[in-house]
Computed example of a mutant assay.
Amino acid sequence: MLVFVTIVLTRPRQQQLVAAQGLESAFKAATAWPSDVRIDSFARLADYEPACQQEAGRRLRKDGLPALWKLAEEQSERYRQAAELLVG
């Protein structure tokens, strides 16, 4: 979802509403996650996702798009691991 939002925000003439909807969708998906996760100090995906969004905003403002892409790679690996635990 972070990658999707990044792509939307970097395209010309995209509305901010689209980005906000993407972030909201990511939070709703995290809230609906059916099991606990163990990502860093977070036990619930619903707690991890807002922290990810805050960190993404911070890195984008500080270091620009390349830093955001790097963060997206790191976070996607953590989400993949959480999904593998759910599937088994």
Score class of each variant (00 low, 15 high):
Lys62Cys: 04
Ser35Phe: 03
Leu68Gln: 02
Glu77Phe: 10
Ala29His: 09
Asp40Met: 05
Glu73Asn: 02
Gly22Ile: 05
Arg11Ile: 06
Ile39Thr: 02
Ala20Tyr: 11
Ser76Trp: 04
Leu45Pro: 03
Asp63Cys: 00
Gln75Thr: 06
Ile39Lys: 04
Arg80Phe: 05
Ala82Met: 04
Glu77Arg: 13
Ser35Ala: 14
Pro50Arg: 00
Gln16Asn: 02
Ala83Asn: 13
Glu84Thr: 05
Ser76Gly: 06
Pro66Leu: 08
Ala72Asp: 07
Arg38Pro: 00
Tyr48Glu: 06
Val37His: 05
Thr31Met: 04
Asp63Glu: 07
Ala26Leu: 15
Arg59His: 05
Gly88Trp: 02
Leu71Lys: 00
Ile7Ser: 08
Tyr48Gly: 01
Gln54Glu: 05
Ala29Glu: 14
Gly88Gln: 04
Phe42Ile: 02
Asp36Arg: 12
Arg78Ser: 15
Leu2Gln: 11
Cys52Ser: 10
Leu65Met: 09
Thr31Gly: 02
Arg44Pro: 02
Glu49Gln: 15
Glu74His: 08
Gly88Arg: 05
Ala29Tyr: 13
Glu73His: 01
Pro12Tyr: 04
Tyr79Arg: 07
Leu65His: 01
Pro66Asn: 09
Glu55Pro: 02
Leu71His: 01
Pro50His: 04
Ile7Arg: 09
Asp63Asn: 06
Arg61Cys: 11
Leu85Val: 03
Leu17Ile: 09
Leu45Asp: 09
Leu85Asn: 06
Gly57Leu: 08
Leu2His: 11
